[in-house]
Design a protein around this nucleic acid. Structure first.
Lengths: 247, 247
DNA sequence: AAGTGGTCTAGACCACCGC
DNA sequence: CGGTGGTCTAGACCACTTC
């Protein structure tokens, strides 16, 4: 039997997704940035749904940065440009695809290790727990983009069953450990001499480090990953808004 | 009775804010990370509100990273630690307050300049347009935290009317140019010798650079700001989730 | 004054989880 | 199976912006 498959779509068609798709189409077909969308009440009538459904659709589009609301005035098309990265959970391959690159990898090391204090702390497991460690050089269009170290408890993925030629996330999903939620920590670092060579930049160059602790839909901690991106090739770009808060 | 006048904004008390505050208090009083919250239906009864109001409160807490939902199972307390910075639009002072520091500033330069190509591009104005430039060293508890350069078209704020001892954002808001939405670009850089000295770190140290283009409610571009943070003192920490995508 | 988005009610059915 | 969060309806009043 060829190829492990992830679950097909028993997914129900959500009404607010239909409305959102319709609005997306409307925007790309006939609206320019800062143009007004039809009012929520108009959209209710157009799609034959309740107002809450319309608002759920607009909320999703706003989250994507495609539209924004002005109270008392209307909903308007945003001015998203290229190279946007809303803070959503994506795999490296998806991220590169979104940025217009072709992703590839070179596996540098795969090993069975015992969790040190840092890894154990992030994954909430006892120090010394057996883990699978994978170190990969990540490429975008054949050029070095990042170095990624991933640590997973052996109970999640054993090293023997790991297939290096397949997406790690797909393998996790296939075994019921889909990474659904993660906490990310982003900071700037100076590269070590070894990492500088791998990324083909001068020693001591700045780099963007993203640490991620990923958990499954059920809340189980699945992976700890540290990814170090070339500073000259990688950035985050997103929209922030002012909210009436706060404590 | 005679009307009591205050300078406070007569902000309406929102029900979902009350519920959210109650849940926040419950969490800090008696719940540990990954403990379950009362169910939404229980919260409805406790606060005497509809389910949608409860869900609005929980949605806000989830946005803050304080709780997370598991379908079919419940809502649980998140594991956010210190030094969190959700990607919201904040002033430097607010940001530092959230992180537990006391913010202060030292103005390094204020000048009238003509927009170069970069600034003009960000603010969508012709090259050579008159702008106000302000350069400040930002401190957290007396320690250098960041260097900030802000550029504003003179039509938004003229240098003569700028008061250095007052919040820039407050002055902008007072003249109808409140920054309420912004696009941010985050990347890692190596500090220049001059900036290294200002931030009191070794020459060539890595730093986190945040560029921001802020716009008013009406979509007018108001400011271009570049803030360079000490890498050892500043990071972003936020929660990301996997969402139904379809692009 | 009219129209907009923001909040809120009081119900309902569904998909999913753990027992 | 009962309980949970996810979606959805059909209304309502409010605060705000624009005319």
């Amino acid at each position: 039997m060829a190829g492990v498959q992830t679950h097909e779509r028993p997914s129900k068609v959500l009404k607010y997704e239909i409305v959102a798709a319709g609005i997306r189409a409307l925007i790309s077909a006939s609206l320019a940035p800062h143009d007004a969308l039809p009012s929520e009440r108009d959209l209710m009538a157009s799609y034959g749904v309740s107002r809450m459904t319309v608002r759920a659709a607009i909320a999703k589009l706003a989250d994507e940065g495609r539209v924004y609301n002005i109270r008392g005035s209307g909903t308007f098309v945003g001015s998203i440009t290229s190279f946007t990265r809303t803070p959503k959970l994506t795999s490296f391959t998806e991220d590169m695809t979104n940025r217009g690159f072709i992703a590839s990898s070179k596996t540098l090391a795969v090993a069975r290790i015992e969790a040190d204090e840092e890894i154990a702390g992030h994954l909430a497991i006892p120090v010394g727990t057996e883990c699978t460690h994978m170190r990969r050089l990540r490429l975008a269009d054949i050029n070095p983009m990042a170095i990624e170290d991933v640590y997973l408890p052996t109970s999640v993925v054993a090293i023997e069953s790991l297939r290096l030629d397949e997406s790690l996330y797909a393998q996790l999903a296939a075994t019921g450990h889909e990474v659904y939620r993660a906490e990310e920590d982003i900071r700037a670092i100076n590269l070590t001499p070894g990492d500088s060579r791998l990324l083909d930049v001068p020693d001591g160059s700045a780099a963007l480090q993203v640490e991620r602790v990923g958990s499954s839909r059920k809340g189980q901690l699945v992976e700890f990953a540290r990814t170090i991106y070339r500073a000259d090739r990688y950035n985050f770009h997103f929209v922030v808004t002012r909210e009436t808060n706060e404590t």
